[in-house]
Design a protein around this nucleic acid. Sequence first.
RNA 1: GGAGAGGUGGCAGAGCGGUUGAAUGCGCCGGAUUCGAAAUCCGGUAUGGCGGUUUCCGUCAUCGGGGGUUCGAAUCCCCCCCUCUCCGCCA
Length: 489
Amino acid sequence: MIDLKALRDDPARFKDGARKKNYDVDIDRILELDTLKRDLMTRAEALRAQQNKLAKESGPKIGQLMGKLKKAEPDERAAIEAEVESLKAAPNKLKNEIQVLNASIDDIAPELDELLMQVPLPPDPDVPVGASADDNVELKRWAPDDWDWNQSFEQNKGFAPKTHIELCKDLGLVDFPRAVKLAGARSYALTGDGMRLHQAILRYALDFMADKHGFAPMSVPVLVREEAMTGTGFFPAGREQAYHVEETTRGGGHDLYLTGTGEVGLMGLHQNEILDEDQLPLKYVTVSTCFRREAGAAGKDTAGLYRIHQFDKVEQVVICRADEQESRDWHKKMLGYVQELLQSLALPHRLLQCCTADLGVKNADMIDVECWMPGRGDTSPSLSSASSVPSEGGASSPPTSNASPTGAFGETHSASRLYDFQCRRLNMRARKGGEGAKGETTFCHSLNNTVAASPRLMIPILEMHQNPDGSVTVPEVLRGYMGGSESIG
RNA sequence: GGAGAGGUGGCAGAGCGGUUGAAUGCGCCGGAUUCGAAAUCCGGUAUGGCGGUUUCCGUCAUCGGGGGUUCGAAUCCCCCCCUCUCCGCCA
């Protein structure tokens, strides 16, 4: 939610922001409704003030008269009743006028609220303006010393890579067919070392943030109320992405939603709270199962572990003081942690500055991290087919052509800077001394970033660390979480 | 799942149709007293919206949330949410 006052003061800024983000919101209509609503409110309140004043004067009199009426002789009753009616007349008239005004307010309020929810947070001025994700800008790349970006996987490593799908099949890490039988498309079952690797990644990432960077480890609900989805900014725009759990037997108001990220649970924790400014920033890390309907992604990345309905994610969230510089500093730090983590896993990756069109409603700035995935991208004739090792099963590639994929970047992380957009919706404020203290409250700033999403992160780990013999070397930092195993297969 | 009790200011806790935004106590802040402290006494002590002559003033709303009855609602009615107790079930 944006600040309505800010919108009144500088509508051009919000119009410009919406345009850059490709959002179509009628801001002039908002201003029109807002003016109208305030005018109606002012008038209704003035009448209400009169009514309150009258009630204080005539109220006790009516009370006395009503008492009198009970004990009154029949011949006195008519006079008393008439007096009561005359006392009621003025406030009654006011009441009717107020009701008319309130009805008008009720008429326009829903439209205003709905429109207001749709106004995106303007992107920061330093975010590149773009029309689509194609206009995102690469900021930097990192790769281990033995990786040359100008060469293919095969040239770098001396053998043609298998895709993670082939590796999973050959090494018995994932059972796709049975999972699909049980749960439908985009499902998977992790088996054996696949499950171990998955858990190792999650636990390593959690410990990395908690022990090394002082984030408080949390476990939070993944089944939440609509309020939490709206508050965190995932509703109404992303409603079709979320699984809706109907509680038919309990009746209305009980329905719940499965969260698509731990961010919802972490941010929702402090909904409607006044935090102690001195206790900020709050730094949380959680590991949670994430549920996504992937509506609108039909036909995209249908095979493998890339785009799935259910996965686990270690997520970091920071709630800090409402200070732009502090927000910007945290954004950098949170990205830094991820780079450090990916370096420790020896995964080549790049930082991608998302352009305005790719930001979504709630972000002022968003930087994605993409890992190199040798098994993605177009398949092209193998550059040196002679040296390629045939897969043991032989089912991974057509026997007649030695095609191997070119490799491509695949998104593994996304770091968002939201300023007070989310905290405004969540009604999360801060002041010195917290809840009981005095003084001004301000909406906090919030930021979030992936630490590790698995199984997706298993893709670059498996593909980058595969060996000519079909085995996969386990990155050193994960070995302690896999009973010391140095390799899979 | 069944039965019952209850949600009031930072906390405890009254009020259960009429100058009640809310008694009283605790806490907190300021002052007096004191060499200082304790004790005591005095005063203050919610949030949000709107407007203004914008360190302040006016006004409206808020007693779990929403709706209703009424000239008037913390108080009566309806729906919802939450908490507690007992029973049942259960990892």
